[in-house]
Design a protein around this nucleic acid. Structure first.
Lengths: 204, 204
DNA sequence: ATTGACAAGTGACATTGTGTCATATAGTAT
DNA sequence: ATACTATATGACACAATGTCACTTGTCAAT
């Protein structure tokens, strides 16, 4: 977590700094991002940076968490829209992520995060069950999911299902990036995979 | 790829260098690994390193590919042992990976790779279909897989299934590492996930 | 208004690491 | 012996990180 000093900063200074950091993390993966670039763009001295953050990692985590929070809120909206059908909701989330993210910078930030800090993101869903505020988030989601057509016998199964579809969505995105698939191609593959998971890969 | 010079090296010098590199990449994730440490441990001058490799990334890729090749060969063995049941074979592969990897260094190398170069590994299976030598590997595998109980209508579906179970295995490992689960706990979760995928997450 | 105490700001600096290059050395074919 | 090519080497230029001693700002108590 950033230090208190960071949160005490006047609004506009904090915004500028965040904006500069987002630019840098959109430009290159986190491990290549340079603090020097960030402070130059934000116009703050080197020492100040270390007043606000432990290090680059600390800043990156903060930004990533912010973004993921937004995504989670959005996912809840979609879950409602799809009447609790978790796979449909995820498909629209993914579609939106691929083709409707309007901001190039946002897109690249998330792409760099997914490719090079995947461990953090992949567990974004899992983390829900540890942190306190996210326990509430999971409960929200659990309420919304329609389990009547799902093959689950308890809450644990539900968690596993969320993990499975997240893992596949995630993998699909990595595949898209590496093979440079079009949005359409990636979406096709994703849909087929989801169908396989829904009906089961083994014959009954 | 390493430069020809590297392959021209006398056996023992090359071994020493590889050993030093593996140690370093087992110690820390690739982006924190230091060339300085590697050359110090290997006892070669700085300039020589750049005779052999483009950069750290080049060396890391080379080592990773070597390791993955070994894993692939092992997977084929298991596929035979399990009479073409791809899920059973993967479960044993995963089990072996968790509890029977004897070498602490090997284990850490792969762990660092999986956590911080996941994009490379996740596509290890996918890559099979691009590179030439790996096309042969996929054909080998395809021959061995028993598709009679699988819900596949063509080769494409089979590829997707391989991707799905790889993605889930991969995610499971990341989860284990981050939440520090025991081998046993991780294995339990994995088995349940595989069963969900086999029978389908939706009621028929 | 002055003081003191604590919070925040600052940039020079030590340290560590990277990739390059000019030069030295070894190997080989003629 | 010569010329040509491949390899070896470490000093160096450059870039980045994290720290620290010092400065500046804020604000409550007197």
């Amino acid at each position: 977590m950033p230090k208190q000093t960071f949160f005490n900063l006047p609004e506009n200074k904090r915004k500028t700094l965040i904006e500069a950091a987002e630019q840098e993390f959109a430009r290159v993966p986190p491990f290549e991002a340079s603090i020097a670039n960030i402070i130059k763009a934000a116009g703050i001295p080197r020492g100040s940076f270390y007043q606000y953050f432990e290090d680059k990692e600390d800043l990156f985590s903060f930004l990533l968490d912010e973004k993921l929070k937004e995504r989670k809120v959005y996912f809840i909206t979609l879950l409602k829209k799809h009447n609790g059908d978790i796979v449909s909701a995820l498909m629209e989330t993914y579609h939106n992520f691929l083709v409707e993210l309007p901001d190039e910078e946002e897109r690249n930030f998330l792409k760099n995060a997914m490719l090079y800090a995947s461990n953090r993101i992949e567990n974004s869903f899992s983390d829900m069950f540890d942190a306190e505020q996210d326990k509430r988030y999971f409960n929200d989601i659990k309420e919304l999911i329609d389990t009547s057509n799902l093959n689950v016998k308890d809450e644990k199964d539900l968690i596993l299902i969320i993990q499975i579809i997240s893992a596949v969505a995630f993998h699909n995105f990595v595949e898209k990036s590496i093979k440079k698939l079009s949005d359409h191609e990636a979406m096709e593959l994703f849909i087929t995979k989801m169908n396989l998971i829904k009906q089961g890969i083994y014959k009954q």
